[in-house]
């Protein structure tokens, strides 16, 4: 499994935000995207995941496992997304948030409940099925969100400053948890971060975005 970017850039009206990016993200590796604020790191992730706001145009190509996904809608790309606010849906319980991620192909009430329970156990959240996500700690929320993303069986993962809202003490723990799961799944991941410690722990290639020269 691999994620390939060919001369990928994003235009808002006039010029491209950053110089075209070409990248080969190998399975199980985490590529860290760094660069100054406002250079368009999150926009790069949006372009890969299919979440660009209206008015933005993608230049170049995104390939996932040899399949060109550049023109596909976000929901058809099989690219998972993690961001700093965890993005758990506030109207659903923790368990139902995870069930939301489970593929439809897994049939049967009991089987689906079991899959959710297993995922919760993996995240150290056993028995928190019925909890309101708002009552979880920051670390628990991050772990639940990662499990929800992984349950959808993504073929690549995008992480947009996933640890920036966590305390320093917690950050190392959640980072290790996240990276271990990515390695276990053997999927390519792209992570935007401001924290050099994140990049160091990721141990993968480093992609530095710089302002487009005009």
């Amino acid at each position: 499994m691999s994620l390939n970017l060919h001369d990928l850039s994003v235009r808002f009206g006039a010029g491209p935000l950053f110089p075209p990016v070409t990248l080969n993200a190998a399975p199980g590796t985490i590529t860290t995207v760094m660069g100054p604020s406002g250079v368009g790191k999150s926009t790069l992730l949006d372009a890969i995941g299919g979440h660009l706001a209206r008015g933005a145009t993608v230049v170049g190509r995104v390939e996932l496992n040899g399949r060109d996904v550049t023109r596909l809608p976000a929901e058809a790309r099989c690219i998972g997304l993690m961001f700093q606010d965890a993005g758990l849906f506030p109207h659903l319980s923790v368990g139902d948030n995870l069930a939301f991620g489970l593929p439809h192909a897994l049939k049967g009430r009991a089987a689906r409940r079991q899959a959710v329970a297993d995922a919760l156990a993996q995240a150290g959240l056993s028995g928190m099925d019925g909890r309101d996500p708002a009552t979880l700690s920051g670390g628990q929320r991050a772990r639940a969100a990662l499990m929800r993303t992984l349950l959808a069986e993504p073929q690549a993962l995008l992480l947009d400053e996933p640890f920036s809202k966590l305390d320093t003490g917690l950050r190392g723990e959640i980072r290790a948890f996240t990276f271990a799961h990515i390695a276990k799944r053997g999927i390519p991941a792209l992570m935007v971060s401001h924290d050099p410690a994140d990049a160091e722990a990721a141990g993968g290639p480093l992609l530095t975005l710089s302002q487009e020269q005009t």
């Binding site: 995941g49 979440h51 809608p73 929901e75 690219i79 997304l81 961001f83 939301f100 991620g101 993504p154």
Partner: peptide, 14 residues
């Protein structure tokens, strides 16, 4: 916007 992105990344249509 964020929730739409989260939902679509999990494979759900708009």
């Amino acid at each position: 916007r964020a929730q739409m992105a989260a939902g679509r990344a999990l494979g759900y249509g708009r």
